[in-house]
Simulated assay, not measured.
Amino acid sequence: MLLVQRAPRPPARPPLQSQRRLFFAAAGLLIAGETIFWTMLAAVQSNSGAAALDAPVHDGLVASRNPLETAFLTAVTTVTSPVSMTVIGCVLALVWAVWKRELWRPALLVGAMAATFAVSTLIKHEVGRGRPAAIDFMLGPDDALSFPSGHTFGAGVFLCVLCYLLLAARGTRSVKRSTSVLGFAAAAAGTLVVALSRLYLGYHWLTDVLASMGLALAVTGVVILADGLRAAMAGRAAPVATATAAVTTPAETALPAEARPAAEYGSERDAHGLGDHHR
């Protein structure tokens, strides 16, 4: 009995339904994030809407300060500064690339952090909004512009994008929905804590941090869309490459000439006949 070796199976592609859900989720995050950001920007420029809450929220948090909360939120805001988050993101991406021998997802994380820093700096200079009164600053003077909050923006992008990339690296079939929900809930909670620290320590208005949350959602949506498009393109290319490689399989070459397809056997017989003719 001949042992026939099977051709290698093509790599599993994510189901079409999963890809569609991923694209809808990315589009939803992008639209929601952009809506929040532009709504906050309009409120700031017109000094209406959510901007009416800026002063009351600021005054209430300043009046409620206590030593324990101050120590905790000071540590949070120190660790999540834009420079710190950029460095942490680059180091984590480097470790990921070396450990997993993968470049795409670490590059997505680094690219998202770099885009966050650039977009935040650009918007700050375009809007030119001043910070609250310096007398309420708890960590010393800061003459940077206020809108949006770089701490909140950077932390939100880092946590949300990292959460998505970790879940995506495990595969859509192996990750439970509850795990995804808990992961993104933790990322959202971490972002809220950073936003609270900026309000509590007196460096930002409420609309500053809300606009940053919207921007973080939008950047996360772009990252998910980019990763989903790459996965879809790779999935389409895989069957073509597999079909090309399977034209002549090891199973066929392992068979004797009598058992091979007629066309191949005929070509060998013709070649032998041609050699005999020239002798």
Score class of each variant (00 low, 15 high):
73 L>D: 04
235 G>R: 00
241 A>Y: 08
226 A>Y: 08
47 N>D: 15
54 D>Y: 05
94 L>C: 10
201 L>H: 02
230 R>S: 05
147 F>R: 05
277 H>C: 14
79 V>S: 08
60 G>C: 10
30 L>Y: 10
207 T>A: 07
269 R>I: 12
246 A>Y: 05
85 M>V: 10
105 R>I: 00
138 M>Y: 01
22 L>F: 13
142 D>M: 09
114 A>T: 11
240 V>C: 10
66 N>C: 03
172 T>Y: 15
57 V>Y: 03
36 I>A: 05
120 S>P: 04
113 M>E: 12
111 G>P: 00
191 T>M: 11
246 A>R: 10
93 A>Q: 08
122 L>N: 00
19 Q>Y: 15
37 F>P: 04
212 S>H: 06
169 A>E: 14
219 V>D: 02
79 V>F: 15
3 L>T: 14
185 A>C: 04
279 R>P: 12
96 W>H: 02
160 C>A: 15
9 R>S: 14
19 Q>V: 11
127 V>W: 01
46 S>P: 03
168 A>T: 07
49 G>M: 06
77 T>Q: 05
75 A>C: 11
85 M>L: 11
211 A>R: 02
187 A>R: 01
194 V>S: 04
103 L>R: 11
226 A>S: 13
150 G>H: 02
191 T>N: 06
121 T>H: 14
100 K>T: 09
70 T>A: 09
268 E>F: 12
114 A>N: 00
222 V>E: 08
2 L>V: 15
127 V>C: 07
98 V>L: 12
72 F>H: 03
251 A>F: 03
148 P>R: 05
278 H>V: 12
31 I>M: 11
79 V>P: 00
161 V>A: 00
86 T>I: 07
66 N>S: 06
169 A>Q: 08
